[in-house]
Write a protein that binds this DNA or RNA. Structure first.
Lengths: 231, 231
DNA sequence: AATCGTATTATGGCCTACCAAATACTGTAG
DNA sequence: CTACAGTATTTGGTAGGCCATAATACGATT
């Protein structure tokens, strides 16, 4: 068995996940899907009990989430779930527009049919999820649509940035996709992106991606200001 | 000096910084300016001794730097200073180009003469620093040039992203600015950005900002590949 | 001598326990 | 009813310990 380095194929996949990573995922998920609401205090010792881990781990997790922007730390008061104000949300959508536009342009310029195929697959999955009212599926497949957009042209860093920003507006996203007509318009806009990429139209792909994000941003703004007045 | 802010002016400026933040800054600085080199192991207990803090704090700091991308964590081996490969650096420059271009366009469209004034001030400071061979000053003033670009149009989130990415390529930056002719070309390119903003030419400002970053990226690539072959 | 197996060491992951300082709460005295 | 003192809560930070793993050194066996 002393062969070459190629044995990587049979390398046993050990879990390798540390307790801290598991806890991180749990807490992030809890924030993202609303188990912890914006403004909620995150008391260390309570989290210890709920997660079944020590304070050491909890503190590291909170630090991590803080640097992700999901948790804010009030001095002498402790961590709370970050509140996102409308202006910040708009900025995040704007950044996503710039980066997704960039990625779309690159995809178009590359002219690789595999890209189009992969994007269309995601798009179909999104339409199916909408049809089944499977909103979690819509989010997941939308995410993989954009992941394709970035990773097919090897823009992993940009994809990381987009991901980082996206978790901060996740509950907004879940509200916008439920909006009336979004199930029609959203996929239609994304389809325009794919069309532009297919015909190698970089500028068109860029604009289509920007348009899609801009539309989401507008809906988010409406939702947010509606929620604010109702409080 | 009068009026409502009087009290605030007197208020004792308590550091308020937690030990952990101080330690974070120290370690980040140590990495950024090369005290710790890429690939170096960061042994927790050693850092405790060097920083004079407990392991808890060190661990939180390492976690934070990890999520900033400055530190990588090898499983079963521990944290090391992240190595940055040439492709990643190019991606970072590309993202900066997209975001700084966006900000420049917004500045141009806003048409506020204060923006131009502030940018010119930074630009003068950059030229002075180059003249005095004060490379740290060049970096600092370049940073404040871009900070102005983003914050004058209230794009704090994008500025945060750019900052986050910039620390990862900081030692590259300090190499590029030392390059021959960069002391002339750099400010000249930035001057073009300011000119476009002054005449309200959004598209021109966008392109000028992109050009500047692209030039920096090209130099960085040359520097990096030169360094690689020499090893 | 080459190889194989076994201590030893270094280190990270994780835990418990503790203390100090700031904040929030509460009950009592005036 | 208010002011104030005391108490509980909670974070920031420290100390130290235990266990698992990986690497290294070392010694024994063939």
């Amino acid at each position: 068995m002393s062969g070459a380095l190629k044995d990587a194929a049979i390398r046993v996949e050990r879990p390798a996940k540390t307790l801290r990573e598991l806890a991180l995922d749990k807490v992030r998920e809890a924030i993202v899907n609303g188990y912890f609401r914006p403004g909620d205090r995150l008391v260390e010792r309570d989290l210890c009990a709920q997660l079944g881990v020590s304070r050491t781990v909890v503190r590291e997790v909170l630090r991590h989430l803080e640097s992700e922007g999901l948790v804010a730390n009030l001095p002498n008061k402790g961590p709370i779930v970050a509140q996102l104000d409308i202006d910040e949300a708009k900025q995040i959508y704007e950044i996503r527009g710039a980066l997704e536009g960039m990625a779309a342009r690159l995809c178009a310029e590359r002219g690789n049919p595999e890209i189009v195929a992969a994007l269309e697959e995601s798009l179909t999955a999104i339409r199916d999820s909408y049809r089944d009212q499977d909103m979690a599926g819509v989010l997941a497949n939308t995410s993989s649509f954009y992941q394709t957009l970035f990773t097919m042209v090897d823009r992993h860093v940009a994809w990381g940035v987009v991901n980082l920003l996206t978790v901060r507006i996740n509950h907004l996203r879940s509200m916008t996709i439920k909006t009336e007509r979004r199930g029609i318009e959203g996929p239609a806009q994304m389809s325009k992106i794919v069309d532009a990429i297919r015909r190698g139209d970089g500028e068109g792909a860029y604009r289509a991606a920007m348009d899609h994000v801009a539309a989401a941003s507008a809906i988010a703004e409406a939702v947010l200001s509606a929620k604010k007045t109702s409080e």
